[in-house]
């Protein structure tokens, strides 16, 4: 871990609430660290756990999953499915030796730009404390598959 380690976090947002929260944070000029890079999905229910593994295996130090609050999903109840998958995924990650804090789930409504910015800030700090994940390297030294990229894609949903 270096002194000035800047973590890279991939964030998944849903199109209806959390992406709009990110837009609102912008419109309101709320500040948060630049370490997060967002990917827009239609719904948190679209989040295939493989996306998370892929991101971590490709060099991200953390993944933030966001969506509408329970009961407010644009597609009615799909974020409950995201929640179920998230809980399962976290267990799997722990078994793989990855700190659970590297993958977080945050609900943010379209009105919660400030909240989303706060959660991003907190997460960046938490991952900074954890240090780099370096999963691809870590895997190689553990004697697993030669290419992390392929390894991740083989994990089924």
């Amino acid at each position: 871990m270096t002194e000035n380690f800047e973590p890279v976090i991939i964030g998944f947002t849903c199109n209806w609430c959390s992406y709009r929260a990110a837009d609102l944070a912008g419109t309101a000029r709320v500040k948060y660290p630049p370490n997060i890079r967002l990917i827009r999905l239609m719904c948190s229910g679209r989040l295939d756990p493989t996306f998370v593994l892929k991101a971590l295996a490709s060099g991200a130090d953390g993944v933030l999953i966001t969506g509408c609050h329970p009961g407010e999903c644009h597609y009615l109840e799909q974020n409950y499915k995201a929640l179920r998958r998230f809980l399962l995924l976290r267990r799997t990650l722990v078994q793989m030796g990855i700190e659970p804090d590297r993958v977080r789930l945050v609900w943010a409504s379209a009105a919660e730009g400030v909240r989303l910015a706060e959660e991003i800030t907190k997460m960046v700090e938490a991952v900074r404390q954890l240090g780099p994940l370096n999963w691809p390297k870590w895997q190689q030294t553990n004697g697993h598959g030669e290419h992390a990229h392929i390894e991740a894609e083989e994990v089924s949903a």
Binding site: M42, C43, R46, L47, P49, R85
Partner: peptide, 12 residues
């Protein structure tokens, strides 16, 4: 279909 993608993510 409304395109949420939940089933896409689920299909093994």
């Amino acid at each position: 279909c409304q395109g949420c993608g939940t089933c896409v993510a689920a299909c093994p």
